[in-house]
């Protein structure tokens, strides 16, 4: 019998976090909602993964730098969505802002610049490149143990997975799906969350039980 993973998520109390957390098809993935101001080690007890939603106030995260390091060291999964300045509260994350163009798609035949960096990765059984395409805010330097999943061509990674055997898994992206889904804006962000959350849960299943 497989054990259901316990996924925690931080809530910064914004309207878009609220809508994302309460969207009926997504709510079942959020096994434990932690109000960001109340984050502590006790709140994370028994959790297998923690999701930091995009546009969480970095000041609330910077005070927990050691907590996040300890969480990863305990071989847990930490997911960091965009516009949350992880370079300020996680070791080994380096971010470079890039120009954000909300209107690139208006040009016929326009290329978003996004590429699947690892098309064979299990995540892409759940989402397509189009589901990860709206606009970009930043790229990341790829840490040594990391695999880029989505790149901006010739620029850098916007979504990567860093697996440190026995020492945690870190998934970082500069995409901001919760903000836009939570704002009823851009249907790709809803598709992204739908697929990403499903993949995340499946990837947390004990090996051999989820086919991931």
């Amino acid at each position: 019998m497989s054990t259901q993973p316990l996924i925690a998520v931080l809530d910064n109390g914004t309207y878009f976090h609220h809508r994302t957390l309460h969207t009926p098809e997504f709510a079942p993935y959020f096994n434990r909602v932690i109000y960001a101001r109340e984050l502590d080690a006790a709140a994370l007890a028994d959790c297998d993964a923690l999701i930091v939603l995009d546009r969480t106030n970095p000041e609330l995260l910077m005070r927990h730098r050691q907590l996040f390091a300890d969480f990863l060291a305990a071989d847990k999964t930490l997911v960091v969505l965009g516009e949350s300045n992880p370079e300020l509260w996680l070791d080994g994350v380096e971010s470079t802002p890039c120009p954000t163009n909300f209107w690139w798609w208006l040009t016929p035949g326009a290329d978003s610049g996004l590429r699947l960096a690892a098309p064979e990765h299990p995540l892409f059984r759940y989402i397509t490149l189009a589901d990860a395409t709206w606009h970009q805010h930043a790229t990341f330097r790829l840490p040594p143990c990391a695999q880029s999943l989505v790149d901006i061509a010739d620029t850098g990674s916007i979504l990567y997975e860093e697996i440190r055997p026995g020492a945690g898994r870190l998934i970082v992206t500069s995409l901001d799906p919760a903000y836009h889904h939570g704002s009823y804006f851009m249907p790709a962000t809803t598709r992204f969350l739908r697929g990403f959350l499903s993949w995340l849960q499946a990837s947390l299943q004990p090996e051999g039980t989820a086919g991931v």
């Binding site: 809530d11 109390g13 914004t14 309207y15 609220h18 109000y35 101001r37 546009r55 106030n57």
Partner: peptide, 9 residues
């Protein structure tokens, strides 16, 4: 702003 933490408010 629209980024208000309404739980705190």
């Amino acid at each position: 702003s629209s980024n208000l933490d309404q739980r705190y408010a």
